[in-house]
Design a protein around this nucleic acid. Sequence first.
DNA 1: GCCGTTTTCGGCCCGACTGTTTTCAGTCG
Length: 570
Amino acid sequence: MGRPNDEVAELFQEFADLLSITGEAAYKVRAYEKAARSIAGYAEDVSTLDLKGLRQIPNVGEAIAKKILDHRETGTIRQLEAVRAKIPAGVRALTAIPTLGPKKALVLYEELGISSVDELAEAIPAGRLEGLKGFGAKTEENILHGIELMKRAGDRVLIDVAMEVAEEVVAALSPLAERCEYAGSLRRSRETIGDVDVLAAAADSAPLMEAFAALPLVSEVIARGDTKTSIRTTKGLQVDLRVVPAESWGAALQYFTGSKAHNVRTREIAVRAGLKLSEYGLFDVESGELVVSATEEEVYERLGLPWVPPTLREDGGEIDAALKGTLPRLVQLADLRGDLHSHTDLTDGIAPLEEMVAAAAAQGWEYFAITDHAPNLFMQRMTDEKMLAQREAVHALGERHPGLTLLHGTELNIDADGEVDWPEEFLSGFDICVASVHSLFTQDRETMTRRIVRAVENPGVHVLGHPTARLIGRREPVDCDWDAVFEACARHHTVVEIDAFPDRLDLPADLIRRALRHGVRFSIDSDAHATGHFANLRYGVGTAQRGWLTPDDVVNTWPLERLRDYLGTG
DNA sequence: GCCGTTTTCGGCCCGACTGTTTTCAGTCG
């Protein structure tokens, strides 16, 4: 269920959303949103803090601190319950539709009684919105497209949500099993996860099934048997537990990891060798005898293949590469020597510079770049003076962390024409500049391509940040001639970012493979807005692996000197 | 509701874009 901070933060975020729907003053709504973000990003566990300790959290004052204590004692927040009674949860869900905010959601609820996304999806084609003030044809179209975008993600969840559940289940069951691991699309590090598959090896499955069904995160047991039990979590995610004998572990793990297409290929290879591969093992067809099944390695080996990393098992050429012995040595989390994209509370981060740097030092990195937003993202209120003052602070801090080289950078805004915030002269004062698209996501392909290529060609720009600007389940990637962009990146030594945020994972894996063909180099960046966000790098690494990247392809696995040479900042 | 070398009130993330509107409201970053 996550750490107590996340639960409390979610309650205040819900409170803020509901207040904004009821038309509460914007500053009040923002106060709760800011508090929610601060609580989520706060290093200490809120459930252990007293009133004084809680008030130390930025943006948490008397009123919010008391609500946290109330919640701890009574399990609820009175004011939240009151507004929940007025606004159904489904109305809040409407605001998750892109282009539909709190004001429109309230109109739909009050005028038409619509209180769910499904109801709205039916009401529009039925013409029920016609004549409703503020809802023209284009608005209806945008809403339907937004719903479509959400539906396409379907019941799938982002990888971090699934990972949290999977790790909780594995941790709870491991003491009862000889082996226990999550498999399926999560093990392959897909960007969204439909359901979580957990595999355990044990002689007797009963205690595992019992413990699994009794976990606190279980809201419903869907099916329960000797070899498989399925549950639904309180948040609606399905988790399947399969228990196999230890001698079948390897075959079962291989089978339940998938993908289906990869398994089809491995089974074909088995058939041609007179073998049969199933979740129970690799068998000799003639004798029916078990050949191997205890580990994945021996299953693959008996098929004449090296072990294939799960992130490659998509039937995307990995079988041929395995047969030829040309599987890449994939980049690992431990290969990273630094992070090239992060924020502090000078702009929209949560943590002060000192805390971000201390947390980066604790990662054991060799270098770390602070890249707060530049002035053209107006809401961040950046100025030249603030940026230069931060640079001084960064230099001073560097002396306190001798093992860690601090890079002072910025995240520039790529404007409509591909220009960025500052002239080259000012840019040259930074150690590293990330440049990203933050607006005008719907430009046509030609305009967008010209725009991004121009930014990439700017000698002051070193990294193209979250290149497609997609938000998984919420915003489409921008339309762009990526081959033209990658070609320009390779030519100008502009690094292409893999932003590790779970709702971005941008550049996506399919485009990484395409970029690789152009000789592009990549950086796997946290885009951290809080110290806890460095943990997201594992998802960035998973995405990089799905793109077949080796450490040599990823600049932040390089020593700083080589990185500087490549960027031309040495 | 939070915050403060403006310190107990009066500000608070500002501006662009979109669609609808007939002069601007809603949404987003």
